[in-house]
Design a protein around this nucleic acid. Structure first.
Length: 888
RNA sequence: GGGCGGAUAGCUCAGUUGGGAGAGCAUCGGCCUUACAAGCCGGGGGUCACAGGUUCGAAUCCUGUUCCGCCUACCA
C-alpha cells in the first residue's frame, strides 16, 4: 500500500509553505471594487513594542475565523491590519536603551530622539506582524497601516483642528494625573487603582488666637504643606462654633481658614478635611467653589517644592516620613490608624501617580458621547454579549473630559503654535509661517504630543483613507464587526464610536464582539511579574498552529474568562491528527479514483444519513459563527467529524470501498467520500487553515486554494429524517451488541450469534438491510431473524425501541461463553435504571395539573417515553424470569 | 460605595426562548479490528453552592445568603 500521507501529522513543515503560497497568490488582498458584498474588520492594532501574547492570539484567531469564513462565502473580505505607535511604551523602550548608553533623551535632543525611535521601529517593531503571520492571519498586508504614518497623521491633524474649531478641544490649567517617572500627564483611564495598606494619620491644626485645634485625617500627610484650608460639613455639630475660624498650618505656621462644604462627610475620619487644591481632585473642586488659592508643594518629579520650606527637594515619600517625625515631636500627630485605600498607578510603569495642576489639552467629550450612546440605544451598534451595554452606558453617562496632551516626544505633535510677539495660539492643518493676528514669524510649536488613543480612535476610518473620499472608505465603512476584549472597551471602543460618528457621520462598526480574557490554568491574569505567561508561540511549536487555533475557538465561550489548559490543547492536537488520519484513509482509497468518470448509482442509505447530518452540521456551524458562538461551532465540528464521520461513516464505507469486489459501487463510494471530505475540509478551514489547505491540494477533484472554495451551507433538500432514523437504529443495535459482549466479558473477537426479535416489521427490515454492517461492526458471526421457536433462554438480552413504535430485542446466547449470574447482575442494573426513569414519567403523568396545563406535545412525549420504558422493562423482566428458571 | 459575572462529574467547562443533566480530560475494563495507540470498543461517576418563592414542571425565572473573580468610584 502506498503511503500517501505520513502516519502522524507534522505541522511544522506545512504551515510556512502555505502561508507563503497564500501571500504569493494575493489571496488576502481585498478587491475593493464593489463586485462582491463587502465584509470588513479592522484589527485592534497591536503596539509596536509588543510581542504576541495569548490575548492577541485569541483575538486574532477569532477575527481570522470570521474573515476566512466570509471570504469563502463569497464576500470581498478586508481584514485591515496595522500597528499602533504606543507613545509612552515605545518612548520608554528607547529611553531605556539610551540609559544603557549613559545618555538621556534631553542630551540627544528631540529630533535625534525621534529618529532613534523610528530606527528602533524599523528594526524591532515588526515582530508582532510576523507572529500574526505565524498564527495564519489572513490580513490584507498590502494595506497595512501604522498610526504614525503619513496618511494617518493627516487624519489626526484634521480631527484635532476640526474639534478645536468646534470648541470641543480646549487648553487650560486643570488638575490632572501625572506620572512622575514618565514625566507626562495621563488620562483618568490610564490610572490603575490598586488597594494598598496605608495609614490614616490624624493631625491637629491649632486654632489661631484661641485654645485648641481641629484634627484632620489624611493618608498623605506630606500634602499638608500645600493646604490652603480645612473644610467641615456645614451641618456638623462638632464644628458649629468654628466656621470661619483661622487655623495655623502645622510646621509652616501658615494661616488658613476653616470653611464649610457639603462635600465633606460627617462619618469619615474626624469630619474635618484638609484642602490641598494642587494635589487632590476633590480639593481642587472645593477650592474652585471657595476661590481658594492653590499651593504647589510637589513638583513634576514628585519632589517637594520651595513652598514646602525646609523640606524642599525631598522625595514625596521621604518627606512623608520626615513630616510625621516632626509632627510627632510637635505633639500634633494625634492618632495613626491602619487603613487600606486605593492608590493610583501609572498603567505603563506602575509608578504612583501624582495629581498636579497643569496646563493641558482636553477634549470636551459630553457632546460626543451622546450620539454614541444613541447609536447603541437604537441598535445601530450592537454589543455582543449585550450585558456589556450596561457598563458602556454607565461609563458614557459619567464621562469626564479627556486629557489628550502628553509631555513626551514620540507621537503626533499637537498642531498649535504660539506667537512669541502677541501670544496668540494658532491651531492649523498646515504649519503656519506667520501669526495670523500680528504677522510675526516667530511661532513656537506646542511641544506636547497627543495621547496614542487619540489616533487609535480614528483607526476604523483613517486606515480606509479618511479624510480623503476613497473607494475603500465608501465600500467598507462602516466596518462589520470589531472584535476585542473588554479591557479596552472604554479606552478604545467608546472613543472610536465618538470619533467615527462625529467625523464621518456614521458608526465605525455595526457590531462589537467582546470576547473573554485569557488567564492561566489557575485563573490568574497572565503577567510578566507573576511569571505565569504562557507563550502562544511555544504552544504553536509544540502542537501546531491549527490545533492551537482550534483550541482558542473552542475556549471562546461568551462572557467568561478563559483558563488556558494545555491538556485541552493536547486534546485538540489529537483531533487535528484524527482529521489527518481520516484524510489519509480517504486518500489511500482514492489513489485510483477517476473524478471525471460518471457515477450512475444513487446515494445509499448510509450516505444519505451522513449527507443529512452534514447539512445539519453545516447549518449549525454557520448559525453559530453568525452569533459569534465560536465554541459551539468548534464543538459541533468536533463531534460530527470524530464521532459520526470517523467512528461510523468510515467504518460503514469500508466494505463498499474494498477493491476488486464491485468496481461500480467502489467508484461511487470513492466519489461520495471525496465529496464528504472536501466539505469537511472546507467547514474546518477557517479554524484550521493549514492542514485543510495541505489535504485539499491532494484531494482529487479539488481545485485552487481552499481559501476560495465555497463554504458549505446546509441544504434542506438533502435532509433525510428517514435515513437518520434507520441508521440510528442500526448504530444503536451495534452499540447494544458491543455492550453485551463487553459487559459479559465476551472477547470482542469471539464469534457470537445474535438473534433479533421484533414485533416491528419495519425495524426488522431496517436491520436486515444493514445486516452486513451490523455483523462487521459488532463482530457477530451469524444473525437470525425472529427464529422459529425463539432463542435459547440462556442468553444475554438488550432491548431497543423501534423507530415506529414497538421494540427490538437482541439476544446473545451465553452457553459456553460466560456465567449466567453475570447476566443476572447486569440485568438488575439495567432494570433499576429503567425503573427509576419510569417512576419519574409515571409521576408526571399521574399529575392532573400536568396533563391539563402542559403543552400537548410535552405530554405526548412523556407518554411515549413511558410506553418505551414499560415495553423495555417488560421484555427484560420476562428474560429475567426465564433466566432464573434456568438457574434453578 | 455602586455595578457586573461566576459557583453543574475528580479537573476544565458547555447547557440559546423553563419540559428527558452534556463534552473534553482524568478514571475503570477490554482491544495492535489492514486511517489513526495522538488510536479503537465498552463502563462508572453529578442533591446543577445554600435557603426560600413563582410554576403542572426550575440547572434555567424571582428574592435572600455564602464564597470567588472583575469593573468602576472624588469619604480624605
Amino acid at each position: 500500500m502506498s503511503e500517501i500521507l505520513e502516519k502522524v501529522y507534522d505541522p511544522g513543515r506545512i504551515e510556512e509553505k502555505w502561508y507563503r503560497f497564500w501571500e504569493k497568490h494575493g489571496l488576502f488582498t481585498a478587491r475593493a471594487d464593489g463586485s462582491r458584498p463587502p465584509y470588513c474588520i479592522v484589527i485592534p492594532p497591536p503596539n509596536i513594542t509588543g510581542s504576541l501574547h495569548m490575548g492577541h492570539a485569541l483575538n486574532n484567531t477569532l477575527q481570522d475565523i470570521l474573515i476566512r469564513w466570509k471570504r469563502m462565502q463569497g464576500c470581498d473580505a478586508l481584514w485591515m491590519p496595522g500597528t499602533d505607535h504606543a507613545g509612552i511604551a515605545t518612548q520608554n523602550v528607547v529611553e531605556r536603551m539610551l540609559a544603557q548608553e549613559g545618555a538621556d533623551r534631553h542630551q540627544v535632543g528631540r529630533e535625534a530622539f525621534i529618529d532613534r525611535v523610528w530606527r528602533w521601529k524599523e528594526e524591532s517593531g515588526g515582530m508582532i506582524i510576523s507572529q500574526l503571520k505565524r498564527l495564519g492571519c489572513s490580513c490584507d498586508w498590502s494595506r497595512e497601516r501604522f498610526t504614525m504614518d503619513e496618511g494617518l497623521s493627516r487624519a489626526v491633524r484634521e480631527v484635532f483642528v476640526r474639534l478645536h474649531e468646534e470648541g470641543l478641544i480646549y487648553q487650560g490649567d486643570y488638575i490632572i494625573n501625572w506620572c512622575p517617572r514618565c514625566q507626562t500627564a495621563l488620562a483618568d483611564l490610564e490610572v490603575e487603582h490598586e488597594p494598598k495598606d496605608g495609614h490614616l494619620y490624624h493631625i491637629k491644626y491649632p486654632l489661631e488666637g484661641r485654645e485648641g485645634g481641629v484634627v484632620v485625617a489624611t493618608t498623605r500627610p506630606e500634602t499638608l504643606l500645600g493646604d490652603t484650608a480645612v473644610a467641615v460639613n456645614p451641618d456638623d455639630p462638632r464644628y458649629q462654633g468654628l466656621h470661619g475660624a483661622t487655623l495655623r498650618l502645622p510646621i509652616l505656621g501658615r494661616k488658613i481658614p476653616l470653611i464649610t462644604d457639603p462635600h465633606v462627610s460627617l462619618e469619615f475620619g474626624t469630619g474635618a478635611l484638609k484642602v490641598t487644591p494642587a494635589h487632590d481632585f476633590n480639593d481642587f473642586e472645593i477650592a474652585r467653589r471657595h476661590h481658594l488659592p492653590a499651593v504647589q508643594a510637589l513638583d513634576e518629579r514628585g519632589r517637594m517644592t520651595e513652598a514646602a520650606g525646609k523640606y524642599e527637594g525631598l522625595d514625596r515619600f521621604a518627606c512623608r516620613e520626615k513630616i510625621l517625625k516632626d509632627l510627632k515631636s510637635d505633639g500634633l500627630l494625634v492618632k495613626v490608624e491602619t487603613y487600606s485605600h486605593a492608590v493610583g498607578h501609572c498603567y505603563r510603569c506602575r509608578t504612583v501617580v501624582e495629581p498636579l495642576i497643569s496646563k493641558q489639552w482636553f477634549v470636551a467629550v459630553k457632546s460626543l458621547a451622546e450620539p454614541a450612546l444613541d447609536a447603541v440605544r437604537q441598535g445601530r451598534i450592537r454589543l455582543i454579549p449585550e450585558a456589556w451595554e450596561k457598563s458602556f452606558f454607565d461609563w458614557m453617562l459619567n464621562i469626564r473630559d479627556w486629557c489628550i496632551s502628553r509631555q513626551i516626544w514620540w507621537g503626533h505633535r499637537i498642531p498649535a503654535w504660539t506667537c512669541e510677539a502677541c501670544g496668540r495660539v494658532t491651531v492649523a492643518r498646515e504649519d503656519p509661517a506667520a501669526c495670523p493676528r500680528c504677522g510675526d514669524r516667530r511661532l513656537v510649536q506646542e511641544t506636547d504630543v497627543l495621547d496614542t488613543w487619540f489616533s487609535s480612535a480614528l483607526w476604523p476610518f483613517s486606515t480606509l483613507g479618511w479624510p480623503d473620499d476613497t473607494p475603500e472608505l465608501r465600500l467598507f465603512y462602516p466596518t462589520n464587526v470589531l472584535v476585542t476584549a473588554f479591557d479596552i472597551l472604554f479606552f478604545w471602543v467608546a472613543r472610536m464610536m465618538m470619533m467615527g460618528l462625529h467625523c464621518v457621520g456614521e458608526v465605525p462598526f455595526r457590531e462589537v464582539y467582546i470576547h473573554a480574557l485569557v488567564r492561566d490554568a489557575e485563573g490568574q491574569k497572565m503577567s510578566k511579574s507573576k511569571g505565569n505567561i504562557v507563550d502562544p508561540l511555544e504552544l504553536m511549536d509544540a502542537y501546531g498552529t491549527d490545533a492551537f487555533r482550534f483550541s482558542l475557538a473552542a475556549f471562546a465561550a461568551m462572557g467568561r474568562d478563559i483558563r488556558l489548559s494545555e491538556e485541552r490543547v493536547v486534546g485538540y492536537r489529537n483531533f487535528v491528527n484524527k482529521v489527518w488520519n481520516a484524510s489519509r484513509f480517504t486518500l489511500m482509497n482514492l489513489a485510483d479514483f477517476e473524478p471525471d468518470r460518471p457515477d450512475a448509482l444513487p446515494l445509499s442509505e448510509v450516505e444519505r444519513w451522513l449527507m443529512s447530518r452534514l447539512q445539519e452540521v453545516s447549518g449549525a456551524v454557520g448559525a453559530h459563527l453568525e452569533a459569534y458562538q465560536f465554541d459551539q461551532a468548534a464543538h459541533v465540528l468536533y463531534q460530527f467529524i470524530w464521532h459520526e464521520f470517523c467512528d461510523w461513516y468510515l467504518e460503514f464505507s469500508k466494505p463498499a470501498l474494498a477493491p476488486g469486489v464491485d468496481e461500480v459501487r467502489r467508484h461511487h463510494s470513492q466519489r461520495v467520500l471525496a465529496d464528504l471530505l472536501g466539505a469537511i475540509l472546507r467547514l474546518l478551514h477557517p479554524f484550521m487553515p493549514f492542514i485543510t489547505e495541505e489535504i485539499w491540494h491532494k484531494l482529487p477533484g479539488a481545485a485552487g486554494s481552499i481559501m476560495t472554495a465555497p463554504y458549505p451551507v446546509g441544504d434542506p433538500a438533502l435532509m433525510d429524517p428517514a435515513a437518520e432514523a434507520e441508521m440510528g437504529l442500526v448504530m444503536e443495535a451495534v452499540t447494544a451488541i458491543r455492550n453485551l459482549k463487553a459487559e459479559m466479558n465476551v472477547p470482542a473477537a469471539a464469534a457470537v450469534e445474535v438473534a433479533v426479535l421484533s414485533d416491528s416489521a419495519q425495524a426488522l427490515a431496517m436491520l436486515e438491510r444493514h445486516a452486513g454492517a451490523v455483523r462487521l461492526l459488532a463482530r457477530v458471526q451469524t444473525l437470525s431473524w425472529n427464529p422459529d421457536g425463539g432463542p435459547p433462554a440462556a442468553s444475554a438480552k438488550a432491548v431497543l425501541a423501534a423507530p415506529g413504535g414497538g421494540s427490538v430485542e437482541l439476544l446473545m446466547p451465553l452457553a459456553g461463553l460466560i456465567d449466567f449470574r453475570e447476566e443476572e447482575r447486569r440485568l438488575n442494573r439495567e432494570m433499576d435504571k429503567l425503573s427509576r426513569e419510569m417512576a419519574q414519567a409515571q409521576k408526571k403523568l399521574a399529575n392532573e395539573d400536568f396533563l391539563a396545563k402542559a403543552p400537548a406535545e410535552v405530554v405526548a412525549r412523556e407518554q411515549e417515553r413511558l410506553a418505551t420504558f414499560t415495553e423495555k422493562l417488560g421484555k427484560l423482566k420476562q428474560h429475567q424470569k426465564r433466566l432464573r428458571a434456568l438457574l434453578g
